Computed example of a mutant assay.
Amino acid sequence: MGLFNFRKKGVEKEGYQGDLGKTAALAALFEVAGTTRDATWEKKFLADAAEASFACGDPQIIQGPDGFPYFQLQIPVPNQPFQCYVVQHMVSDFILDRGIGVVINAQKGQPDWVFTYGDLVNFAIKGEFYTASPAVQLPQQEVIQQQEEVLVGQPSEEFLPMPTRGIIRQFLEQQGIRDPKIALMSRQYGEEVLQELVTNLTPEKVGRQLSEALQTPMRWFLPRHYSMVAMDENGSFNDHFEPL
């Protein structure tokens, strides 16, 4: 997949002020062995991760084993000055625009935590890294019934921010896809209403191998609770698709 072409090799931001108390709490959490980190540990981590003060690694941005770029954050060395980085400020300042994730303490070999770009998009939208998925069991192959009421439109800024649309478009163009299109579909599943991001990246358009290969990386860019389907852009949704 490769790294995106950033204008700068690194990212520098002056003036961040984080919560050193939360940094200390995270440092204590990271002393807990990985095999014993349970739901309570995770809840405590997520409560402090956004506002804690971090130092950055060298280099600032690395390529993860999944092929995507990650900004390195580390717990600061005690009693040593450091340039402060705070996740909640980083998200709005440059992460949304640059399409990068965040890895914490990658220098350990086994990072203490990894946020995908989609996790950070979710934070930008909802103020939380993860949102519970609707209690809906989706079929492997979806079929819209003739009498089914389906609402179709375009994703709002609150669902898919414009910088994120641009980052996904850039990624798809790197795969040789020049005219990606999207829509947003709302469907009733029992008592639940589910919004699904619809793309035109069908096997018929981009080839079965590429269509299947894009499923996992596409989800890296999106909040984890989002549902995504591919449909024929020349079908019944023709009037609703718009360029990504």
Rank of each mutant, 00 (worst) to 15 (best):
N238M: 15
T131A: 09
R7P: 12
A27Y: 12
L3V: 14
D48M: 12
G101N: 07
P59A: 05
G190P: 02
M90E: 04
W113C: 07
Q17A: 09
D119C: 03
F129K: 02
N105D: 09
D239C: 12
P155W: 02
A47Q: 09
I104Q: 08
V86P: 04
W41R: 02
R224C: 08
L138S: 03
W113A: 08
M90R: 04
Y189C: 12
P69T: 02
E149Y: 14
M218Y: 05
Y16K: 04
R224K: 14
A47M: 11
A132E: 09
A33L: 10
G176H: 06
G99W: 01
G176A: 11
L184V: 13
V32Q: 11
P134W: 04
P78L: 03
V198T: 10
A52Q: 03
F171I: 06
L201G: 03
D93G: 05
D97Q: 07
M185Y: 06
V198P: 02
L197D: 03
D239I: 10
I75Q: 03
G99D: 00
V229K: 13
P155C: 09
I177M: 01
L201M: 04
L201T: 02
N122E: 05
A213G: 07
V143K: 10
F129H: 05
V32T: 08
K13M: 13
L120G: 01
W220Y: 09
G166Q: 13
G18D: 05
V193M: 08
E173I: 08
M162E: 15
Q83K: 13
Q154T: 12
D38C: 04
V103F: 07
V102D: 01
L26H: 04
P217V: 07
I75V: 06
M228R: 12
L20M: 15
Q215W: 11
V143L: 11
L20E: 15
A106D: 13
N105I: 04
V87Y: 00
E191I: 15
T40K: 03
F159T: 11
S236G: 08
F82T: 01
